[in-house]
Amino acid sequence: MSLLRYALAVALVGVISLAVMAWLWPINDDFRSQNPAWNGTGQLSELPGVEPLEKLADLPAETAGTTFIVVPYLAFGPDELAALDGFLEAGGTLIVANDYGYGNQILEHLGVPGRFSGEALLDPLHRYKNDWLPLITRYEGDALTQGVASLVLNHATTLEGVAAADVLAWSSSFSFLDLDGNGEWNEAEPQGPFPVITSQPLAQGRLVLVADPSLFINGMEELGDNLAFAYNIASNAPGGLFIDQSHLPPSSLHKAKDVLEVFRNAAVTPAGRLGLVLLPLLIIPLLLWAGKKDSRSNGRGDRDDS
């Protein structure tokens, strides 16, 4: 076997191995519904009626009774913002779960006064394990907070410019905004309580702001009543709960899976399947022909020898 053929064979085997590994390897992207690890949202996606969305164009036209959770870590384009408008106009509930992403771009577009402060919310006394995991125990009565006594946030931020009547959950009086990022409270840093969840009617629908998307990740579901909160969201969306996946930064693995998905989709088309069926039927005769050729050349050598 020549060197070129040998290298080609190794590369082919390598590419196929990588493709198989990339296909089977679970992704660990933050907030991805396919991610079963602590930082994914696989558990939320398994709730009844929950459907991850890869693009906003897949939102249903009839949005009354549906809820759409957006974790905006990528900016929205004009068409996407218009899609959110349409969703709210048709009566859907839009949940913007954001801490340090592009949540304010959405709020600015929607023309509501509330904003995500973008400052880290720390709580030295009401918290789980450390100050960056604040415990939320102050709630206003609402269908979303029914049966919720405590929520555990994870590197959250706060809401500002929201009406007190719209607030569903507040941080404790001990919480503060860590403006200088030193992890400790200083005299100049504002102290709580701060609003962390709000709900307000908007257009024909409802806008819910959650100042921490990490509330929904797998590792946080079992803490406090986080799962009950997620259940409340799902149960208040009889028309379906959709989770946006299109504004999460994709990893290389995710991109590789996307490419493989293209191949897979092509393979499941009638033409693709026909190709998959015919491929072995083509390869087997080729192998037979190659074997026959080798045996002929060997035979010729024998005759030469004799």
Binding site: N28, D29, D30, Y100, N154, S214, P249
Partner: peptide, 9 residues
């Protein structure tokens, strides 16, 4: 990969 720029959690 796939992690957002600011550690969110």
């Amino acid at each position: 990969g796939g992690q957002v720029a600011t550690s969110p959690h």
